[in-house]
C-alpha cells in the first residue's frame, strides 16, 4: 500500500483499520458466497414435501426472491445491525442462540489469556537469563514438545491424568447448566483453561526468550549495566519493555488462534461455547448460525491482529519514528 504512507501514528492506525474493514468485507463475501452452494434455504427449512405456495411465501419472507447481490446486502445489513437471522435448528434468533455461548467462550479465552501471558513471559524471560543452563534446556525442550501436541490430545491427556485414571481431582466434563454462567463452576473451568494455556504458552515463551536474548546482548543493556544500574532496574526498565514488542504479535495471533482452538477443546469437555455450537450447527446444517460464527471468529482474528500491530508500534520507539 505504498500510496498510503505518512500521517504518523494516527495515519498508520487509520490505514490498518481501513485494511481490516476491507478484509472483513471480503470475508463476508466469501462466507455468503460459500453458503450459497447449499441451495435453497427455504427448501431446507420446509423439507422436501413443501407446497409451492408455502415455499414461495417463505422465500419472500427470507428475502430470497431478490437477486443474489440484493440478498448479500440484505444479509450484510442485518449483520451490521445485529440481526443475524433465525437459527434453522431451534427457530430462535441467532443472537439469542449465540449470546450465552459467546459469553461462555469469552470466559475461557480471557481466563486462558490472563493465565498464559504472564506465565509464558516469565518462563521465556527467565530462560533467556539462564541461557543454556538447566532451566533453559528443560523449559525450551518441554515447550517444543508441547507446541507440537494437538489441543484435543492435550485435553484428553489431562482428563486421563486429572479426572479418570491417575488422580480424581476434577470433573471430566464442563457442561454449564442452561441459565447459569460458566464462572459459577470454577472447578469445571480448570481443565479447559489449562488446555488452552498449554496450547498458547509454548509460542509466547519461545518468542519471549528469543527477543529477550537479543535485547540482553544489545548495547543499551550493556550501557545500562556499565552505568552501574542495579540488575533489577536493567531488566525491568530497560530490557523487558524492549523485548516485549515482538511478543504482542505472537500473543495476538495465539489469542485469535484460541477463538478457533476452542472449537475442539469445548467438544472434549462438552463445554457450551461457540466451538460446540459451531460443531453442532455444522452437523445440523444450520447455515445462519454457521455464517454468524464464521464472521465472528474472523472478526476476532482481524481485530486482534489490528490491536497487535498498533501495540507493537506503540511499544517500539524505533518503529514509531519510521512511520
Amino acid at each position: 500500500m505504498k500510496w498510503l504512507r505518512g500521517g504518523g501514528i494516527a495515519g498508520f492506525i487509520l490505514r490498518r483499520v481501513l485494511l481490516g474493514i476491507l478484509v472483513l468485507f471480503l470475508v463476508s463475501v466469501i462466507v455468503f458466497a460459500s453458503t450459497q452452494l447449499l441451495g435453497d434455504p427455504a427448501r431446507a427449512i420446509l423439507g422436501r414435501d413443501a407446497t409451492p405456495d408455502r415455499l414461495a411465501a417463505l422465500q419472500k419472507q427470507l428475502n430470497l426472491d431478490s437477486s443474489k447481490v440484493g440478498q448479500y446486502f440484505h444479509w450484510l445489513g442485518g449483520l451490521l445491525g445485529g440481526n443475524l437471522g433465525t437459527s434453522l435448528a431451534s427457530s430462535q434468533p441467532v443472537t439469542t442462540v449465540l449470546g450465552a455461548r459467546i459469553a461462555n467462550s469469552a470466559v475461557l479465552v480471557v481466563l486462558a489469556a490472563i493465565a498464559s501471558v504472564p506465565i509464558s513471559i516469565a518462563i521465556g524471560s527467565y530462560a533467556a537469563l539462564r541461557r543454556e543452563k538447566l532451566f533453559d534446556t528443560v523449559s525450551s525442550n518441554l515447550m517444543l514438545v508441547l507446541a507440537a501436541l494437538p489441543e484435543f490430545v492435550v485435553a484428553v491427556l489431562l482428563v486421563i491424568l486429572l479426572s479418570t485414571n491417575v488422580f480424581h481431582l476434577l470433573p471430566a466434563t464442563s457442561p454449564v447448566r442452561p441459565g447459569t454462567h460458566a464462572w459459577q463452576y470454577p472447578d469445571e473451568l480448570v481443565m479447559p483453561v489449562a488446555t488452552l494455556v498449554i496450547a498458547v504458552a509454548p509460542y509466547v515463551s519461545r518468542i519471549m526468550r528469543a527477543s529477550m536474548i537479543e535485547v540482553l546482548e544489545s548495547d543499551y543493556v550493556e550501557m545500562a549495566r556499565l552505568k552501574g544500574l542495579p540488575e533489577r532496574t536493567v531488566l525491568i526498565r530497560h530490557a523487558l519493555p524492549n523485548a516485549i514488542g515482538p511478543v504482542f504479535q505472537v500473543i495476538a495471533i495465539n489469542l485469535a488462534y484460541l477463538a478457533g482452538g476452542v472449537v475442539v477443546i469445548e467438544s472434549v469437555f462438552n463445554y457450551p461455547g461457540i466451538g460446540l455450537e459451531l460443531v453442532d450447527s455444522v452437523n445440523n446444517h444450520d447455515i445462519p448460525v454457521v455464517q454468524a460464527l464464521a464472521m465472528l471468529i474472523a472478526a476476532v482474528y482481524v481485530v486482534l491482529n489490528l490491536l497487535a500491530d498498533v501495540a507493537t508500534i506503540l511499544v517500539t520507539p524505533r518503529l514509531r519514528t519510521r512511520l
Partner: peptide, 9 residues
C-alpha cells in the same frame, strides 16, 4: 483474508 479463518473452522 484466508488467514482470518482458523484452519479447523
Amino acid at each position: 483474508v484466508i488467514m482470518a479463518f482458523p484452519q479447523i473452522m
